[in-house]
Amino acid sequence: MNCNDFIQILDADLDGDPPPAEWSGHAATCPRCALVLRLERTLRSAPRWAESPRLSARSRAAIVSVAGATPMFWRHVAAMAEEAAVSALVGAGMVAMAIYAGPSLWTGAVPEPVRLAVSPYVQPLFSEIGTVGAAFEPLLHQGWGVALISLTGFVVLFAAALSTRALSLRPAG
């Protein structure tokens, strides 16, 4: 075994145990590799010799006081609401994009044979969306129409995301 082999074996052992004892035979005859091995062993024992720092009492007290300051119920609600709001905003954006670009993509980007094959399955959905959309269309021409529709969409998605999040926190079993 030469020095390169020695180093290669050492480097390959990223997730495993320290190098086997018989392998370290090369190190007995090579001062440089002996030092490399010594370094590796020192590194592997670092958790035992390294300082184990602790936070000052002031910092710990600051964290613990925050932990006890806000009632857990409201902390839960705030965290879930924050996540649900982000999900709802992203979801609303995606739905808006789908409504805006979907029809033109459907007719322009999807090949005719695929469209014909898929049409029997998606056509009822499109019809329903068209019916619902037509009901909302007059709102679009009013002053606050777009804002109202956006707000409604956000609230619906927010409620859905919040419900999903709340249900996922229930302990299994």
């Binding site: 000052s56 910092s59 902390r75 965290a79 999040r165 996922s168």
Partner: peptide, 24 residues
């Protein structure tokens, strides 16, 4: 820098405290 590290450690645990409710 131990002082900076301690401030960051405090920040880390405060963020963890906030996020642990929704830790998945």
């Amino acid at each position: 820098d131990r002082t900076r590290a301690e401030d960051l450690c405090q920040e880390t645990f405060l963020k963890a405290l906030k996020g642990l409710s929704s830790f998945r």
